[in-house]
């Protein structure tokens, strides 16, 4: 199958997705639309973490930090001035915070860029560390971001956070950004640069001997991952319309990590599928945490049960199917057509 056919098929798939979204918008209720939105955002986050961890082998637990940066940057840029005046009741914001304004698309990119810049800044010192040290140090970075958000009220409104963020992030924006993320990361992974990332993950010493400046490419992968984590955070802020420092606890990183591991470290397809599956399951399991009424009899909801189920699920995956849903395999058009016709499998790759 040649390159042109594949591009056509990809465009066709995107068209089918848009048709589905259009249909969903017409016929789904707000709750289901919300789930679709969360799927798109979770997929963006999972893809970006997978680039960092699954493909380049850097164990980063800093995703919540990048998301927070993206979310706050974007919110400051899209909150109307009047809303900002209402929000900052304890202290007045810095004048540039008060004045900052941008259209939504640019605000999301801004969120991504500031997160990427933060990624670059922390990456330069931290990426020299080995895997679990890197994990704990990036986790520390995310915690520091959260503490900063709590302690610079003139920028972030402190513990109160932001409310009434304009809800621009509809399914078109979210899925548009999902497609952009998927395209960018897939382009990188499928090029020789992707092979270089894989080489760094599999054997750093050998990669060095191949003339690869490991540090530079680690930093590149980390920064790109941070950019899309920031984008995901920005979209999430606009989708939920409220943010505060408590939202960006380690739990948030844990959720993304769970999606990536479930889907398969080193598989974009896996990350996307797991985003769909886990987001739906998470929402569906909400019922165990909210009260159930049987006639006039009320069964109390059990708070925490959802995460018990999910952490158990993660444990089962890591203990019994370590490679996750897809392992390192990817969906390929050749493979799909190979299923339908014997002829197709002959030129598969």
């Amino acid at each position: 199958m040649d390159r042109k056919t594949k591009i056509l098929l990809n465009v066709a798939a995107a068209a089918v997705l848009s048709l589905f979204l259009w249909w969903a918008q017409e016929s789904f209720g707000g709750y289901r639309i919300q789930i679709l939105n969360l799927i798109a955002i979770n997929a963006i986050l999972a893809l970006s973490l997978n680039l960092i961890y699954g493909f380049t082998g850097m164990f980063s637990l800093g995703h919540a930090g990048f998301m927070a940066i993206g979310a706050y940057t974007c919110s400051i840029l899209i909150l109307p001035e009047t809303q900002k005046e209402m929000l900052f009741i304890l202290v007045s914001p810095y004048s540039w915070v008060q004045a900052a304004q941008a259209p939504f698309f640019l605000a999301v990119i801004g969120g991504g860029l500031v997160a990427a810049f933060a990624g670059l800044l922390v990456g330069i010192p931290l990426l020299r560390l080995g895997d679990d040290y890197l994990g704990i140090a990036t986790l520390g970075f995310a915690e520091i971001i959260r503490v900063l958000a709590n302690n610079i009220p003139r920028l972030t409104n402190g513990a109160l956070g932001f409310k009434g963020i304009p809800d621009y992030a509809n399914i078109w924006w979210n899925f548009g950004w999902f497609i952009i993320t998927l395209y960018c990361i897939a382009r990188i992974i499928n090029s020789n640069l992707g092979n270089v990332f894989m080489a760094i993950r599999d054997d750093e010493a050998a990669a060095k001997a191949m003339g690869i400046n490991i540090f530079r490419y680690k930093l590149l992968s980390f920064t790109i991952g941070a950019f899309f984590a920031g984008v995901g955070g920005a979209l999430l802020a606009s989708l939920l319309t409220t943010i505060d420092p408590k939202m960006f606890l380690f739990t948030l990183t844990f959720n993304v990590l769970m999606i990536v591991v479930t889907g398969g470290l080193g598989s974009l397809t896996g990350s996307v599928l797991a985003s769909i599956g886990i987001t739906i399951l998470m929402e569906w399991l909400r019922f165990v945490e909210s009260p159930i009424f049987i006639g006039s009899f009320e069964l109390k909801g059990i708070p925490g049960m959802r995460m018990v189920v999910f952490s158990l699920a993660l444990l089962f995956i890591i203990l019994f199917r370590r490679e996750g849903l897809m392992g390192m395999r990817e969906f390929r058009w050749d493979w799909l057509f190979g299923k339908f016709s014997k002829r197709g499998s002959a030129n598969g790759s």
Binding site: F59, D132, P303, S311
Partner: peptide, 26 residues
């Protein structure tokens, strides 16, 4: 997971941590 890649055990540890914490909440 003794023979598995080190990172698997680490994820398992994170899983146990969240499990115990949320079980305690329950």
């Amino acid at each position: 997971l003794r023979d598995a890649p080190r990172i698997s055990a680490l994820i398992s540890a994170i899983g146990v941590s969240f499990f115990l914490q949320n079980l305690a909440i329950v």
